[in-house]
Amino acid sequence: MNPIYHLEERLKAKGLALPPAPTPLGAYVPAVISGNLLFLSGMLPLRDARLIRTGKAGFDVTLEELREDAAQVVLNALAVVKQTLGDFNRIVRCVKLTGYVASADTFYEQPQVINGASELLFELMGERGRHCRSAVGVSVLPLNSPIEIDFIFEIDKC
């Protein structure tokens, strides 16, 4: 059986659950399918429709907190994937993610922050969770969020 079919079981085994899919905070849609690609808009570390924390890496927020935020972003993204596709059976793989980290000008550990997302995707999806990525330091993000991540998934056309 395709290992992606077990994604929800892997979530449960890790003590995690998908949250409700976050609603857009502006004039955009959370996901767009083009051909065999599913593009997700930038996801914030929201829990119960609120940011878990605010601030900048290297100033207000620790590396470990940022890694937790990155994992929450993955859960939010998977909730959008499920809402868009109905289930996870059409996912072929995660192709790419781009992580943005609101950073003090002396913070250089953006890759370690975004590892919180990359590692969880691999744990949940196996090899299909390995992806290309960028980890970018920025001066500010929407709502004073410490991170934002967007995703591209390859899907079966069906």
Rank of each mutant, 00 (worst) to 15 (best):
M1A: 09
Y5R: 11
L7W: 07
L7G: 06
E8W: 00
K12Q: 01
A13E: 14
K14C: 02
G15T: 00
A17V: 11
L18K: 01
L18T: 00
T23D: 02
L25T: 11
Y28I: 08
V29D: 10
P30H: 11
P30T: 07
A31P: 14
V32E: 13
L38M: 01
F39A: 09
L40C: 06
P45V: 01
P45W: 02
P45E: 02
R47F: 15
R50T: 10
L51C: 05
I52C: 12
T54P: 08
G55P: 10
K56D: 08
A57S: 03
V61N: 08
V61R: 12
L63W: 11
E65F: 15
R67L: 09
E68W: 08
V73H: 08
V73G: 07
L78H: 12
A79H: 06
V81T: 08
V81P: 11
V81H: 05
Q83P: 10
G86K: 10
N89F: 13
R90W: 03
I91P: 04
I91L: 12
V92G: 11
R93C: 03
R93S: 09
C94V: 15
K96T: 05
T98C: 01
D105V: 05
T106K: 15
T106A: 12
F107V: 04
Y108W: 08
E109F: 15
Q110V: 02
G116C: 05
L120R: 08
G126F: 09
R130C: 11
H131M: 13
C132Q: 13
S134L: 08
V136Q: 03
N144C: 07
N144V: 06
P146T: 04
I147D: 03
I149F: 06
D150Q: 07
I152W: 01
F153N: 07
